[in-house]
Design a protein around this nucleic acid. Structure first.
Lengths: 195, 195
DNA sequence: CAGCTGACAGATTTCAATATCTGTCATCTG
DNA sequence: CAGATGACAGATATTGAAATCTGTCAGCTG
C-alpha cells in the first residue's frame, strides 16, 4: 500500500517480511510479495538475503531476541535470586501466553518459522539457559541456593519448565488448572534449589 | 499374507490394524487394507468398530496402555518411595526412548495416532499422574517426602519431566547430554520433594 | 559503478479431473 | 437369523498439467 521511497536496507526488508507473514501466513508469503510491499523488484531483496530461508531465519531470530531481551532485564535486577527466578519464570510464561492468546494466527506463523529454523531456536534456548545460569550463580554466591554444577542446574530448570514456555504446548496454556500447575512446578523447583 | 480363518473378533481386527499401520503408515492405512489382511469384506470390520476413527482410537489406547501397565509394577513395588520414583522416571524415559529409537517409522505412526486422539492421550496422562500420586503419598506417609497437596505435586512431577517422555521431544532424546539433563532434572525434583 | 531490474530455468505449488476410500444397507448364506 | 457381503453415494486422496515462485545474472540507470 505504502511504496516507501527510502533506501533499501536489511532492516526495512525484515519489517516488510514480518508484515507479509502477518497478512498472508507462512505458507503463502513469497519473496515477490515482500518485494511488492517495498515497491522494488524481488531481485533487490536477494541482494540483502542470499535465500528465502535466510530471510525467514533472520525474521525468526528477531522475534526470539525480542523475548530474551525483555527477560535479560530481570536477570540484571538487584533483588534476591529466588524472587528474580520466580519473576523470570513468570515473565517468560506470561510473555509466551500473551503472544499465543492475543494473535493465534500470528503465533501459528511463528511456530512454523521456529520449526524450520532449528538453529536459531537452539541459540535462543542457549541464551535463556545462560540467563538462568546467572541467576543460579547469584543464588549460590548469596548462599540461598545449592547447586554443585550451576550450569547443569540451569539446564534442569529450563527443561523442567518447558511445559510452560515451549510453544508446542500453547493450546494447553488456556486450559483451567494451568496456572496452578505452573505454580506447583515453580514451587517444587525452588524447594529443590534452596540451600 | 496369512488369511487366518478363525471367527472375526475386535481383538483380531486390532491386531490386523496394527500390522497394516506398521506396513503402510498412518496416511495410507485404510479399512479396506485391514479387511483384506483378515480375508473379510470391509463391511465386516464396521460391525465391530463404528468408524475408522474409532478403530484408530482403540489401537492408540492399546498402545498407550501397554506403557502404563508396565509402569504400574514399579508403583506397587515394596521399596522406599524415593527409589521407586527414580525407577519410575527411568523406566518411563527408557521405554519411550527405546520405542522411538528401535523403530522410528512405527514411532512416527503412533505420534500421528496420538495427535488425532487427544482424549485417549488425556486418559493416559491421567493414569500416569495417578501412579505418581500413589508414590508421592507413600513417600509422605513414610515421612521421606513433603507435599501439602500430593495431587498437585504429582502433576508437577509429571509436567516437569515432559521433556523426557513427551514424544514430541523424541528427536532430542538421542542427542549427547540428554542423559545428564535427565539426571539433573530428576535430582532437582527429588531434592524439592524431600522432607 | 553501485545498486536495481526483469527475463529466465528449474523447483515448487495449485487446481481440477480421476481414482480410491468411508460408511450404509438391502441382500445373501450357513 | 446372526453374521457376512458388496454395490453404492458422498467424502477424501492422488495425479499430472498449468501456474507460480525461487534464485541467477546480463544489462540498465542515476
Amino acid at each position: 500500500m505504502t511504496p516507501t521511497p527510502q533506501t533499501l536496507t536489511a532492516e526495512r526488508i525484515l519489517e516488510a517480511t514480518e508484515e507479509v507473514l502477518r497478512r498472508h501466513g507462512p505458507a503463502k508469503a513469497t519473496v515477490v510479495d515482500v518485494a511488492r510491499a517495498l515497491g522494488v523488484s524481488h531481485g533487490s531483496v536477494y541482494r540483502h538475503f542470499r535465500t528465502k530461508a535466510a530471510l525467514r531465519e533472520a525474521v525468526t531470530k528477531r522475534w526470539l531476541d525480542r523475548t530474551s531481551d525483555s527477560l535479560s532485564g530481570i536477570v540484571a535486577e538487584d533483588r534476591d535470586p529466588e524472587a528474580r527466578l520466580r519473576a523470570w519464570f513468570s515473565a517468560l510464561f506470561a510473555a509466551k501466553r500473551r503472544k499465543a492468546g492475543d494473535d493465534p494466527e500470528l503465533f501459528a506463523t511463528y511456530m512454523v518459522l521456529t520449526e524450520e529454523n532449528g538453529e536459531a531456536v537452539g541459540e535462543h534456548i542457549a541464551e535463556l539457559i545462560s540467563q538462568l545460569r546467572r541467576i543460579v550463580r547469584a543464588g549460590v554466591d548469596a548462599g540461598t541456593f545449592t547447586a554443585d554444577d550451576p550450569s547443569a542446574t540451569a539446564r534442569a530448570l529450563f527443561h523442567a519448565s518447558r511445559r510452560f514456555h515451549d510453544p508446542r504446548y500453547a493450546v494447553e496454556w488456556e486450559q483451567p488448572g494451568t496456572e496452578a500447575d505452573f505454580d506447583a512446578v515453580v514451587d517444587l523447583l525452588l524447594r529443590g534449589l534452596r540451600a
